[in-house]
């Protein structure tokens, strides 16, 4: 097993279950016993950190560090520093985080859904091919571009997951969703139109000239 096995969804799940800090320590690049597993791990942790930052979890709680099996002192330093960092941040959802408990755990639930979801996993998985060999048209993406696209996807995915989570509780109008989730209503509307098109959300009824939307159960 390699750090490459670390599934970001599992990471979010652990934090959702009250983990306060996680440090992933992998080999140095080019020194990986699984050749490139650490590269994948780093990319996945980086994305998870971005997502954490977006949802209000202090991203310092999640770290990717590197050291070799011969570097005991480096390892000790890494662990000591991380331990001090987490102690200074305190428990998850306290002073160290932008969003507080218990709200933060709802956010982490959405984060887990995002990280277990198809879209972000697909894009994360395509990172190496896009950066190194390019897409099917041979267009190579720069890290810069990829990160920018990823930033956008993170915001969209979290918001979509939050909308889906809300709709799971019952049918709602765009206005209600916007109010509940503190997302501008035009953005909610756009997500809803996209979700409708995907067949994941449908019109339930029209109440007082406001369309009410409901979740469409998905076949598994």
């Amino acid at each position: 097993m390699c750090t490459g096995r670390i599934d970001p969804a599992m990471v979010a799940r652990a934090f959702q279950k009250r983990l306060d800090g996680l440090m992933v320590v992998g080999c140095y690049f080019g020194d990986c016993h699984y050749i490139s597993g650490n590269v994948q791990a780093k990319a996945k942790i980086d994305t998870t950190r971005k997502l954490f930052k977006h949802i209000g979890v202090n991203e310092e709680r999640l770290a990717f560090r590197q050291c070799s099996s011969g570097e005991a002192s480096v390892f000790v330093k890494l662990v000591t520093e991380f331990d001090e960092k987490i102690r200074s941040l305190g428990p998850l959802g306290g002073d160290g985080d932008r969003v507080k408990a218990p709200e933060i755990f709802g956010k982490l639930e959405a984060a887990e859904a995002v990280l277990a979801g198809e879209k972000i996993r697909w894009v994360m998985g395509k990172r190496t091919p896009f950066l190194e060999t390019g897409n099917i048209y041979g267009e190579i993406f720069t890290e810069h571009e990829f990160n920018r696209a990823m930033d956008m996807i993170i915001v969209e995915e979290i918001e979509v997951q939050e909308i889906l989570a809300k709709l799971k509780e019952g049918a709602r109008s765009v206005k209600d969703l916007a109010g509940d989730l503190a997302i501008p209503s035009e953005r909610v509307f756009r997500y809803i139109t996209a979700l409708k098109r995907k067949g994941m959300v449908a019109l339930d009824n029209v109440a007082d000239r406001s369309p009410i939307f409901q979740l469409v159960p998905q076949e598994v």
Partner: peptide
């Protein structure tokens, strides 16, 4: 190494003795 299991967006792949359920 498990890179595939951590990447698969369908969660179709797993690693013997290191499955999602076991790790969780």
């Amino acid at each position: 190494c498990g890179v595939c299991a951590a990447t698969c967006y369908q969660h179709a792949l797993t690693i013997n003795s290191y499955t999602d359920q076991q790790l969780e």
